[in-house]
């Protein structure tokens, strides 16, 4: 499980690049990157919150965005920063697992949504996964 993420510039919004060694790490990296945008250096002292997720989508690209949007909705409802996912099952069009996070007093940045704009998950010859996600801020 290895991944890294980087927040990139955009004229109006924010882009997040994730590079990962496997598909599971790609989802974990995207989740952690999104949590970083919402609140960098979030305190780990809040109340632990675990939520089940199960999402079915058209393909791996839409699955990643649908997953992040589901997490965003739960963040908004519970005032939580979710930054971990324990994946039970991941296919090219479905994910089942548990997301974990902690409650916070407030967020630093409002993400309106993860978008499908120019979304293209790739895997190179070495098996490295890469994607850039645009978030509407």
């Amino acid at each position: 499980m290895a991944y890294q993420y980087k927040v990139l510039s955009h004229p109006a919004d924010v882009r997040l690049e994730i590079i990962a060694s496997c598909k599971e790490s790609l989802f974990q990296g995207a989740l952690e990157g999104m949590a970083y945008i919402i609140k960098p250096n979030a305190s780990q002292r809040g109340i632990l919150k675990k939520e089940q997720i199960e999402i079915h989508s058209l393909d791996i690209n839409t699955l990643l965005v649908d997953f992040l949007n589901e997490v965003l909705a739960k963040s908004d409802i519970y005032n939580c920063i979710f930054n971990k996912v324990k994946i039970k099952k991941l296919t090219d069009n479905s994910i089942k697992g548990i997301i974990e996070g902690r409650s916070v007093k407030e967020f630093s940045k409002e993400i309106k949504a993860a978008t499908y704009h120019q979304l293209n998950i790739t895997q190179d010859k070495k098996g490295i996964w890469k994607v850039i996600i645009l978030f509407d801020i």
Partner: peptide, 17 residues
Amino acid sequence: RGLGHQVATDYIRLFMQ
């Protein structure tokens, strides 16, 4: 606010499908 964001998210997803 979040209500509108969710309506858009729900329907963009539905429309793509």
